[in-house]
């Protein structure tokens, strides 16, 4: 069983959903990225997505755009992404990369999968790649034992859901709503229905992302999904902080809150 599959199995054995956190590589800074994520893992994050900063992130709202922009301006390269993955793997959490397609294609599909495997990474989420365009990517990820996660959306027909889940490994990423990343006051009501439709096509874990930022939302999503994915809320906590130290503390506190949410519990202490 892969590390990622073990993580979902362990969460399920606990009677809860897994908490998956996203941060862009090189954010909030090159040196702070891994320590901040380590603090989040210490406070209940089960698995991590490292974003590969890209110049044209058309699925991302303003919060993640700002973070990615600052990381790119600081000179983050794919080598740094791999290094961040290696660092986060050291925390014990299974680590994936979230990347738009062009950087992977340009870097070399096989090279990307191979170097990610060498860094200890376990999977890649590709928000603008559909299975129809993924032929070489499917070969490369199979070759190097990397899970590939495609997305389903509320607009996906049952036929498309079938196509997508057959191409997925690791888990299926269900976009909770029609839109881009960013916190919302309410997680879309279309998410539970989407998850239940996906379950008719696969036994893979189904994780829900887009719009989750609070403990109550995490608890709600955890009641029907296998994983709760949170990105913009962590990024915002770090962008809003007055110092890197304060940012790390805020991200850790948010992790603890969300971890309590996926456990259906109320209130846990923040571990330093």
């Amino acid at each position: 069983m892969s590390h990622l599959a073990e993580t979902f199995a362990a969460a399920r054995a606990d009677g809860r959903a897994a908490l998956i956190a996203y941060l862009p590589a090189g954010f909030p800074t090159r040196v702070d990225c891994v320590p901040v994520i380590a603090a989040m893992v210490e406070n209940g994050v089960d698995a991590v997505e490292i974003g590969l900063p890209y110049s044209d992130p058309l699925m991302d709202g303003p919060v993640i755009q700002a973070a990615v922009d600052s990381s790119l301006k600081a000179g983050t390269r794919i080598g740094d992404v791999m290094a961040n993955v290696g660092g986060v793997v050291g925390t014990g959490a299974p680590t994936l990369v979230m990347s738009y397609w062009n950087p992977i294609e340009r870097y070399g599909v096989d090279r990307f999968a191979r170097e990610l495997a060498e860094a200890g990474g376990c999977g890649v989420i590709t928000p603008d790649l559909t299975p129809e365009e993924a032929g070489p990517w499917i070969e490369a990820t199979d070759e190097h034992g990397i899970d590939r996660v495609f997305l389903v959306a509320p607009s996906s027909s049952d036929e498309r859901i079938e196509t997508v889940v057959r191409a997925c490994s690791g888990f299926v990423y269900a976009a909770s709503t029609m839109g881009v990343t960013g916190a919302r006051t309410a997680v879309s009501s279309s998410a539970p229905e989407l998850v239940s439709r996906v379950r008719q096509h696969t036994t893979l874990p189904v994780c829900v992302g887009l719009g989750v930022s609070t403990r109550a939302q995490a608890a709600d999503v955890a009641s029907y999904a296998d994983g709760v994915i949170v990105g913009s809320a962590f990024v915002k906590a770090l962008l809003d902080a007055e110092s890197p130290g304060a940012g790390a503390a805020a991200a850790a506190a948010l992790a603890a809150e969300l971890a309590a949410g996926v456990r259906g519990a109320s209130g846990v202490g923040v571990r330093a």
Binding site: D128, A153, S155, S156, S157, R160, A175
Partner: peptide, 20 residues
């Protein structure tokens, strides 16, 4: 039929837009 001109073209979009 896949919208390709040789190796160019295609559909590299979020799944949410595929139905549209």
């Amino acid at each position: 039929s896949a919208g390709r001109f040789g190796k160019y073209g295609g559909r590299f979009v979020p799944e949410a837009l595929m139905a549209a």
